[in-house]
C-alpha cells in the first residue's frame, strides 16, 4: 500500500470546486433551454377519444354486475359489435396507425429536441472534463472503501496501488452528474428537476399503440359473464336494517 498521498490545495481550487459549479450551472441551463424548446402539442381528438373509450369500457367491465342485464347487453353491443362498435378496429388499420405515428414529423421533432437537450450537454461536458482534468486525483473521502468501489471512484486512473478512498476527477464528474438531482429539485422546484430517468421512461412509452389496447379491451369485454349483483343486495339491506333497527 502506498503511503498517504498529499493533495495540492490548488487541485481543490481549480478542479474540484469548478467541476461541481459547472455541473450545477449546466443543469440549470439545460432546464431553461428545454423549457424554451418545449412545444405544447395539442392532443389529437382521435387518440383522446380512444383513451376515453378504453376507460369507459374498463368501467363497464369492472362494474358490469351493478347494472341490469338489459343495460349491460346494450352497452356491450355498443362497444364491440362488428360493424361500428367503438372498440372494434377494422382490419388493416392496425399497422397504419403505427406508421402514421412514426411519420408524424411533430412527434419525431419533439423526441429529438428532448434527446438533444439531454445528450449534447452531457457529451460536451464529458469531453471537457476528459480534456482538462483527466488523470487527476481530485479528492479523498474520509473513510476507507473496498476494492469494488475502485471502478466507481477511480475512473481514469489505472493504478491498483492507490487507496480506494481517493477520487479521480472523472469519477467526480460522474458522481456529480448522477448525484445532483436532489440539489436541482431544491433549486428548480420539485417537478422541474431534470430527471433523466423519468425521461427515459417516457421514451419507452412511445411505441404504445392504442388500437392494440382497444382490441384487447374488446376481447375482455366479450368474455365478461354478466351476473346482476343487485338481487343479493336485498338480502344485505335486510341484514343492515335488522342491525339498524335492533
Amino acid at each position: 500500500m502506498a503511503e498517504d498521498l498529499v493533495l495540492d490545495g490548488a487541485i481543490r481550487d481549480w478542479v474540484l470546486i469548478p467541476l461541481s459549479v459547472v455541473m450545477v450551472l449546466i443543469g440549470v441551463l439545460r432546464y431553461f433551454v428545454s423549457k424554451l424548446m418545449r412545444s405544447s402539442q395539442l392532443p389529437d381528438a382521435k387518440i383522446l377519444k380512444e383513451g376515453q373509450v378504453i376507460i369507459r369500457a374498463r368501467n363497464l367491465r369492472a362494474a358490469a354486475n351493478f347494472i341490469p342485464a338489459k343495460s349491460f347487453r346494450a352497452r356491450r353491443a355498443y362497444y364491440s359489435n362488428e360493424e361500428n362498435g367503438l372498440l372494434h378496429v377494422p382490419k388493416g388499420q392496425t399497422q397504419n396507425a403505427q406508421a402514421q405515428m412514426f411519420s408524424d414529423p411533430n412527434m419525431a421533432m419533439d423526441m429529438m429536441k428532448k434527446n438533444l437537450s439531454m445528450i449534447i450537454p452531457q457529451t460536451l461536458t464529458f469531453a471537457w472534463v476528459n480534456f482538462f482534468f483527466s488523470g487527476f486525483v481530485a479528492a479523498k473521502i474520509p473513510f476507507p472503501l473496498t476494492q469494488r468501489f475502485r471502478s466507481m471512484l477511480q475512473n481514469g486512473i489505472d493504478l491498483s496501488t492507490v487507496d480506494v478512498s481517493y477520487v479521480s476527477s472523472r469519477s467526480w464528474y460522474f458522481l456529480n452528474l448522477f448525484g445532483l438531482r436532489g440539489l436541482f429539485s431544491l433549486i428548480l422546484g420539485e417537478e422541474n428537476a431534470t430527471d433523466d430517468t423519468a425521461r427515459m421512461m417516457q421514451m419507452g412509452g412511445f411505441g404504445f399503440d392504442p388500437t392494440k389496447s382497444l382490441s384487447a379491451e374488446k376481447d375482455s369485454l366479450d368474455i365478461v359473464q354478466h351476473e346482476w349483483a343487485l338481487p343479493k343486495f336485498e338480502q344485505r339491506a335486510e341484514a343492515v336494517l335488522k342491525k339498524f333497527v335492533s
Partner: peptide, 25 residues
C-alpha cells in the same frame, strides 16, 4: 322491482341512514 333493488343497495351502501331510500322501499 328494479327500483326496489337499487333502493336496497342504497340502504346497504349507506348503512340504513338514507331516509329517501327507506321511503323508496
Amino acid at each position: 322491482q328494479m327500483a326496489k333493488k337499487y333502493y336496497a343497495s342504497t340502504i346497504d351502501l349507506t348503512g340504513g341512514k338514507n331516509t329517501r331510500a327507506l321511503f323508496g322501499i
